[in-house]
């Protein structure tokens, strides 16, 4: 599951531009992933300039395995 860390986010919109599904909603200082649309393609993770978006493999292997892939 893709997760955006709101405390670290600069709300720059880079991830929104590369999202093929229009699954990210960005207001002035508020950002949300629309889970019904997200396909976990990870493009937003790769495009984030400041490492704010993570793939959270909850319940897989070692538990909370967060990393940039």
């Amino acid at each position: 599951m893709i997760e955006i860390l709101p405390d670290k986010c600069d709300f720059c919109g880079c991830c929104v531009g590369v999202c093929p599904e229009d699954a990210i909603e960005l207001k002035e200082a508020e950002i949300n992933i629309i889970e019904e649309l997200c396909t976990n393609c990870s493009k937003c993770i790769w495009a984030c300039p400041i490492e704010v978006i993570k793939f959270n493999r909850n319940g897989v292997g070692k538990g909370n395995d967060e990393k940039r892939i």
């Binding site: 720059c12 919109g13 880079c14 929104v16 531009g17 590369v18 999202c19 093929p20 229009d22 960005l26 493009k43 790769w46 495009a47």
Partner: peptide, 21 residues
């Protein structure tokens, strides 16, 4: 701007390949 959602809602393919960003 870079998000370009308005165009998408009108059916214009605005999404950009992450390699071009």
């Amino acid at each position: 701007g870079v998000e370009s959602r308005v165009g998408r809602w009108a059916g214009i393919k605005t999404y950009i390949d992450f390699r071009d960003m």
